[in-house]
């Protein structure tokens, strides 16, 4: 299930380029996180929310100073670009471009991806999760290092894609599968940008770290602040294993708890599911979910 060395997989993604000397300032007025003091090669995740505090877009940043690359769910491309092109002040230099297909995002995951990176001359110890490190014309960063596996992320210009992936394969990387990589991220407690999380409140996804209530106003900030201060966070997100693929969307447990499955990815012989559930629900044992196919047992990962 977990590759003994590492597999690589290309994650389909939408890409938007925000460029100009005021790119960071413009983004900072809309994002849920503070990017005002970011610098060249900062790696960051962020949301743009609507006025009700619900997620409109979820993106990964590659900060190239006056050019900021955003990676996001490709179905969110249109709304993200529409959001970013409105409200550009008369005295700021900001341009929004599509980069779909220009750059590829791959995940390198397995028990020992460090060995493959070492073969390329990349010292894993020098990689940081909040920072991109240049390698040839690519960028690499670490997503998660667990006891049993590690996940790294690489951004590659499409023109160099074959050359770089060949290099990785020569050094032992296998060919991975998108669902396995995203499932492994879920097991590590992460939600990939390729998963559609629009319409959800960041707190309900367990992504409080992407909401900075001290940065000042942004769309949805009042709602987030109220939820946070009045203990209004009633839901949480956890990862569960099933023997069958779960339908995405809302369902109910046999105890009548409201549940919502936002991702169900095959991982070996089982399926790894990301579930939004009431905070107070007991996660110690399995949850039985009512489905049209009958009751399905969700087992905590």
């Amino acid at each position: 299930m977990i590759p003994p060395l590492a597999d690589i997989v290309n994650i389909p993604t939408g890409i938007t380029l925000v460029s100009g000397k005021d790119a960071r300032t413009h983004l900072n007025r809309m994002l849920t996180v503070d990017v005002s003091s970011d610098s060249l090669l900062t790696r960051k995740e962020s949301f743009i929310c609507d006025l009700n505090g619900r997620i409109t877009t979820y993106q990964l940043h590659v900060d190239l100073d006056e050019q900021i690359l955003l990676f996001h769910n490709d179905s969110m491309s249109e709304i993200l670009r529409k959001t970013l092109t409105r409200g550009i002040p008369w005295n700021e230099e900001i341009e929004i471009s599509s980069g779909d297909g220009a750059v590829q995002r791959i995940l390198i995951y397995g028990k020992q991806p460090e060995k493959i990176l070492a073969g390329l001359g990349i010292n894993q110890a020098q990689l940081q999760s909040g920072h991109w490190t240049e390698f040839l014309d690519t960028m690499i960063s670490v997503i998660k290092i667990e006891d049993e596996f590690s996940i790294y992320e690489m951004i590659i210009p499409s023109r160099d894609y074959s050359e770089i992936t060949d290099l990785l394969h020569v050094n032992g990387a296998g060919i991975g599968e998108v669902h396995s990589a995203i499932a492994l991220l879920s097991i590590a407690g992460m939600i990939d940008y390729s998963i559609d999380v629009s319409g959800h409140i960041p707190f309900n996804l367990g992504l409080q770290r992407l909401v900075d209530l001290k940065k000042g106003c942004y769309p949805g900030q009042e709602i987030h602040a109220r939820m946070e201060s009045r203990d209004g966070i009633k839901k949480s997100t956890s990862t569960f294993k099933t023997n069958v693929q779960m339908r995405l969307g809302k369902s109910k447990s046999t105890n009548n708890d409201q549940l919502e499955i936002i991702s169900s990815q095959r991982f070996g012989d089982s399926w790894i599911n990301v579930l939004i559930h009431p905070k107070e629900i007991s996660l110690s044992s399995e949850i039985l979910v009512n489905t049209p196919e009958g009751e399905i047992a969700l087992k905590s990962v």
Partner: peptide, 15 residues
């Protein structure tokens, strides 16, 4: 930055 140099990016989206 060579990551995004070259072709592949659209012209700026018109507002």
């Amino acid at each position: 930055m060579s990551l995004i140099e070259g072709t592949g990016f659209s012209l700026p989206i018109a507002t």
